[in-house]
Simulated assay, not measured.
Amino acid sequence: MSKPLILQTDFGLADGAVSAMKGVAHSVSSEIPIYDNTHYIPPFDIWSASYRLWQTINYWPEETVFVSVVDPGVGSDRKSIVARTKDNRYIITPDNGTLTHIYYHQEIVEVREIDEELNRLPSSGASHTFHGRDIYAFTGARLAAGIIDMEGVGPALSVENVERLPFYHPKLDDNNEKITGTIDILDVQFGNLWTNIERELFEKLGITYGDEVEVEIFHDSRQVYKNTMRYGRSFASTKVGEPVIYVNSLDNMAIAINQGSFAKAYNIGIGTSWRVVLK
């Protein structure tokens, strides 16, 4: 029985690129259930691709196959790989940092380089700019359909040598008074800031619902925001237009404006250069 195949790209849906990937997968086996994670990763944004994989991977059954194609280095000498997590979920992706969050949060137990002589769409050898269709969708479908296993992907690589983007782990100061983390991603539709600060770490500050929290945001060394806001159960914990800090769906701390976009209001970005301090 075929396993689910999940596609993620920065292609958008304005043309036939994603449809072509699905067609290739179904040409391998029409029984493969194919789903979309997102095709609206910002162009070339490997960090966001990494986060969106981690955001969703745990909600899919074991042996689900993910294909993530955000590949500004397509056609270069970067490797094409398949990674297996300790929970037996598979990610097919360029080795360009897309596995960063999975590496630090999920534990990768096996990585193999795709043998493109064996795992490439027939008659596509002259194409060097659409590996998402010709290599990743094709290999993902073969893996999901059980035509190949990990050994059939290609030669083994060292897990420790997987390409990773700079990563910052949240830190609690020695006096349990301040936590420094990063703004990992935006809740895109609403402009909320999702930090990498886990709820359990935040609770070590001794803060409870209704308390005021001092929030500072820095871009590199430049402070771009400083204010106090209420720690609420939801957005309704404050008046419309007021900021609130809350626990998001990944059990991490997030910052919002009730019925507004915090990111747009203060021009906030994402990644390790964006630090947030909670006191």
Score class of each variant (00 low, 15 high):
136 Y>V: 05
138 F>E: 07
141 A>G: 00
142 R>W: 04
144 A>L: 03
145 A>I: 01
146 G>D: 00
148 I>L: 03
150 M>D: 04
150 M>C: 02
151 E>A: 12
152 G>T: 00
153 V>I: 06
154 G>W: 02
154 G>V: 01
157 L>E: 01
158 S>Y: 01
160 E>Y: 09
160 E>H: 10
161 N>W: 07
162 V>W: 12
162 V>M: 11
163 E>C: 12
164 R>H: 00
164 R>I: 03
166 P>D: 01
168 Y>F: 09
169 H>T: 13
170 P>D: 00
172 L>D: 06
173 D>H: 08
174 D>R: 04
174 D>W: 07
174 D>E: 06
175 N>L: 14
175 N>P: 13
176 N>A: 08
176 N>P: 02
176 N>S: 11
177 E>S: 10
178 K>T: 05
180 T>L: 01
180 T>C: 02
181 G>T: 03
181 G>V: 01
182 T>D: 06
182 T>P: 08
182 T>C: 11
183 I>R: 04
184 D>G: 10
186 L>M: 08
186 L>P: 05
187 D>C: 07
187 D>T: 12
187 D>A: 12
188 V>Y: 15
188 V>R: 15
189 Q>S: 13
191 G>W: 04
191 G>D: 02
192 N>S: 08
193 L>W: 07
193 L>G: 08
193 L>A: 06
193 L>V: 02
194 W>G: 11
194 W>E: 14
195 T>D: 05
196 N>T: 01
197 I>F: 02
198 E>Y: 09
199 R>V: 11
199 R>D: 13
200 E>L: 07
201 L>F: 04
201 L>W: 05
201 L>N: 04
202 F>T: 03
203 E>W: 10
206 G>K: 09
206 G>D: 07
207 I>F: 08
208 T>Q: 12
208 T>V: 11
208 T>P: 05
208 T>A: 10
208 T>M: 08
209 Y>D: 07
210 G>Y: 03
210 G>N: 02
210 G>H: 00
212 E>C: 08
213 V>W: 10
214 E>A: 13
214 E>S: 12
215 V>F: 08
216 E>V: 04
218 F>T: 02
218 F>L: 06
218 F>S: 05
218 F>V: 08
220 D>F: 14
221 S>T: 14
221 S>W: 10
222 R>A: 13
223 Q>D: 07
225 Y>V: 04
225 Y>Q: 09
225 Y>L: 12
226 K>I: 15
226 K>F: 14
227 N>P: 06
230 R>N: 13
230 R>Q: 08
231 Y>K: 06
231 Y>H: 07
232 G>Q: 08
234 S>W: 09
234 S>A: 09
234 S>D: 10
234 S>T: 09
235 F>N: 10
235 F>W: 08
236 A>N: 12
237 S>D: 15
240 V>K: 15
243 P>T: 02
243 P>Q: 08
244 V>C: 09
245 I>S: 14
